[in-house]
Amino acid sequence: MTTTNPATATDAKISVREVTKTFPLKGEEFTALDRVSIDIADNEFVTVVGPSGCGKSTLMNVLAGLETPTSGEALVDGRAVSGPGPERGVIFQQYALFPWLSVRKNVEFGLKVNGVPKAQRRERAEHFIEMVGLQQFADALPKMLSGGMKQRCAIARAYAVNPSILLMDEPFGALDALTRVKLQEQLLDTWSREKRTVMFITHDVDEAVFLANRVVVMAARPGRIYDVIDVDLPYPRTEDVRLSPEFGELRNRVWHAVYHQEPGVAAGATSH
């Protein structure tokens, strides 16, 4: 049932094949993901939008190795995902910083559990703390940081273990509009300097278009891929890009796909 096509397995960084995930719900089966398939290329920035409950987080958890698919499989570098791995960094919506550790210790956490020696740990942590602009707060506890700073710390922590893939679940969802825009720009800036394959979940259409090479639109009941929209806008994405008519056009397309979904449509999104 889950036959892998070796020809395409090699060129995609992430390959989701016919992944179905059901949860038991009041004695019945609830289908959170229904035969979802998508390939994501190396260093590609893919955003995922869709109504609440369409399975965005479930899809990410499958890729992170925190949930196992009911059927189908998720491949990373051609190998089936069977649990969390150091090549996949995850950034959660609720920041998920360890509140008893300082910013520095949070960033060092992944290095420490992977046995990186102390001096090296320090150095790497320093680099990524600087990258997200938190030098002044390296020894502060998370409770002293604002939401945006917490999320930057979480980004530094994910980067520190040097993953080739970043999975981000509505990382800026809890932030105010100004902070969001700021962090979006910083994220793209970081991404252009330290290239990674990114899957970024959001419910903000503007954010989805602004960041992505490709926008994946999902639909609910059952959770499935509704449409995939290519974003042919140049990087670096400046304010000019954000205010350009091309951006507006794409934004309208994505908006339409998210808010005016026709029932029963599902896109076979394996092409790239």
Binding site: A64, G65, L66, P84, G85, P86, R88, G89, V90, F92, Q94, A96, L97, F98, F109, G110, V113, N114, R157, V161
Partner: peptide
């Protein structure tokens, strides 16, 4: 989420 955060960072 804290446990998941530790797991994805490689903690056993």
């Amino acid at each position: 989420t804290l446990i998941n955060a530790a797991r994805v960072l490689g903690a056993k």
